[in-house]
Simulated scan of single mutants.
Amino acid sequence: MPGQINWVELPAADTAKARAFYSGLFGWGTSEFGGDYHVIDNGPAGAIAPREDGFTHPRVYFATDDIDASVKRIHELGGTGENVQAVPGVGRITHCHDDQGTPFSLYEPAPQE
């Protein structure tokens, strides 16, 4: 459903330590998705990922049925959006800021086959 939070990414300087922390706290298990990106198996829809410049706080993804139209609307409302990226077999994403600079991301799922 558009506007619902459908994914969260937790940045970590050391993903192994973060996975151990959240496993100890919530009992989460993870699966490696690629590189040092670890999908949470039995918790919220999301992942533990390497911390990077500009990615130092949890990243929230909102669902959208049409990411291109949503990015256009973000710009019309005074926000900003990066180029849309395709994630093979998953869908399309983009990182954005609202008109006050608050970061958020959008996710459009891949079409069902």
Rank of each mutant, 00 (worst) to 15 (best):
L106V: 01
A47C: 13
D68C: 05
E52A: 13
G79D: 09
A47M: 07
C96S: 14
G79N: 10
S70L: 14
G91E: 11
K72P: 03
E82A: 14
P2F: 00
F62R: 02
F62E: 09
D14E: 14
G91W: 06
W28N: 08
V84E: 04
S31A: 15
G91T: 13
S31G: 05
I40D: 02
T64E: 10
I40R: 01
N6F: 09
Q85M: 15
P44L: 01
S70K: 11
D65G: 14
N83W: 02
N6E: 07
Y61P: 03
S23V: 02
D99H: 14
V84L: 09
L25D: 07
G91D: 06
A110K: 13
Q4G: 15
E9F: 08
E108H: 08
E113C: 04
G79C: 08
A49S: 10
D68M: 08
Y61I: 11
D99G: 09
G24Q: 02
R73G: 14
Q112D: 04
I40C: 05
P88A: 08
T94W: 01
E82F: 00
I74P: 00
Q100R: 12
P2M: 12
R59L: 10
G24P: 11
A47Q: 11
T102L: 14
G24E: 09
I93N: 08
E82N: 10
Y37M: 06
W7M: 08
R51D: 06
E9S: 07
H57G: 03
T94N: 02
S105Y: 08
G101K: 06
T56F: 01
I48V: 15
G3R: 09
Y37E: 02
G27E: 06
I40K: 12
G24R: 05
S105F: 05
E32V: 05
A20K: 11
I93A: 10
Y22F: 13
F104S: 04
G34Q: 08
G46V: 13
K72Q: 13
A110Y: 07
V84N: 03
V87S: 14
D66W: 03
A110M: 10
Y22M: 10
H75Y: 00
N83I: 08
T30P: 01
A49E: 13
I48Q: 06
P111I: 12
A12T: 09
D14R: 12
R92Y: 09
V8R: 01
E113T: 10
H75C: 01
G91N: 15
V87P: 02
V87H: 14
I48F: 12
E76F: 06
A16M: 08
A13W: 02
D98E: 01
I5N: 06
P88G: 08
E82C: 03
G79L: 04
A16Q: 10
A18L: 05
F104D: 03
P103H: 02
G79T: 11
S31M: 13
L106K: 00
P109G: 07
H75D: 00
V84Y: 12
R59V: 12
R92S: 13
G89W: 00
E9W: 09
S23T: 09
T15L: 13
A86I: 05
I93L: 11
A69M: 03
